[in-house]
């Protein structure tokens, strides 16, 4: 970890301290972490990304998938470092392009579970076009977008999901751009499965990710997280624990949201958690297989 981050948080982390020998053996799930990658992770202490990694591992474990049959594809950013620590086929690509690489991989290996892990800047700014087209094609990929409302790795510049009026190192007077509603975008573009939860609601994340991976079509889970190191510091939102707690207080389940009056819905500023779309549409690689069968069957 960088010294400035450590200092900013008064953290006392001994980087030389490695997990005990029986650390992996204690948990079936943890065995899906790599043994040959040196921990700790690059993430700041208290970061929400680790929660998403845990949820993803538990989801894959829950589905009983073989490690060899899972591929994780990531772009660039804090979130995109996640596959490094996980024991699957892992492809760390270029900024914004995870879904485009994943598209090629899925077409080459339709039998494989291809999961793309991206941050908000990665998926929606530089990768926004790939995002909507992967959804439109209904490519059989699970996209996990970890939304921390900021470019964390580069030090806190505003992203396409930074809330209006929030501050960032490149929005020192407050952000004047409205944010992208990620789930709405995925729904409009044609995704088969769309859900959102937060890193506070880890078990709900497990469930949504598990459902998303099971979906034969483009599935997207927005995992709302936070960046206490950059966004939190600039906007004076407190510690990681404070920001984690805030996710509990500033989010609302889809059911509870459904019970609100029309006026309350209009005025709602809370993050709605839930599964917004779960439909069946022809999945791209299935459609292409049918095309091959037709053409090889002699159709002109």
């Amino acid at each position: 970890m960088n010294d400035h981050i450590r200092e900013a948080h008064g953290l006392e982390v001994d980087e030389g301290q490695l997990p005990a020998e029986d650390w992996f053996e204690r948990s079936e799930t943890l065995q899906k972490l790599r043994r040959n990658k040196k921990f700790p992770t690059i993430w700041c202490s208290g970061c929400g990304i680790g929660v998403v990694m845990g949820a993803l591992i538990r989801a894959i474990d829950h589905l009983g998938l073989k490690n060899d049959d899972v591929a994780l594809v990531a772009g660039i950013g804090c979130s995109a470092r996640m596959p490094i620590y996980m024991d699957y086929n892992t492809l760390h690509t270029t900024h914004g392009r995870a879904l485009a690489f994943a598209t090629g991989l899925k077409i080459a290996r339709p039998d494989m579970k291809v999961i793309a892990i991206m941050g908000d800047g990665d998926a929606l700014a530089i990768g926004g076009n790939h995002f909507i087209h992967a959804a439109r094609r209904n490519m059989g990929i699970t996209a996990i977008v970890i939304n921390n409302s900021i470019y964390g790795m580069t030090g806190g510049q505003y992203s396409p999901t930074t809330p209006l009026n929030s501050r960032a190192t490149t929005a020192p007077y407050g952000n004047i751009e409205p944010p992208f509603p990620i789930c709405d975008l995925a729904v409009a573009a044609g995704a088969s499965y769309v859900a959102r939860s937060t890193v506070y609601h880890a078990l709900e994340l497990d469930k949504f990710i598990s459902e998303a991976i099971s979906k034969d079509g483009f599935s997207m889970v927005e995992a709302v997280s936070y960046c206490h190191t950059t966004y939190g510091r600039i906007n004076k939102l407190g510690t990681a624990a404070d920001m984690m707690r805030a996710l509990k207080d500033t989010s609302i389940s889809q059911t509870a949201y459904g019970n609100l009056s029309p006026e309350e819905k209009t005025n709602n500023t809370k993050i709605v958690r839930g599964n917004f779309v779960n439909i069946d549409r022809p999945q791209y690689t299935n459609s292409y297989s049918s095309l091959i069968t037709r053409i090889q069957g002699g159709e002109q």
Binding site: L91, L105, I107, H133
Partner: peptide, 22 residues
């Protein structure tokens, strides 16, 4: 398999992904 991607950046990414897939 053939796919027309959304741009050349994605095309290049897709062929690398497919190559890794074999």
């Amino acid at each position: 398999k053939f796919i027309q991607m959304e741009d050349e950046i994605a095309s290049m990414a897709a062929i690398i992904g497919a190559s890794v897939g074999g």
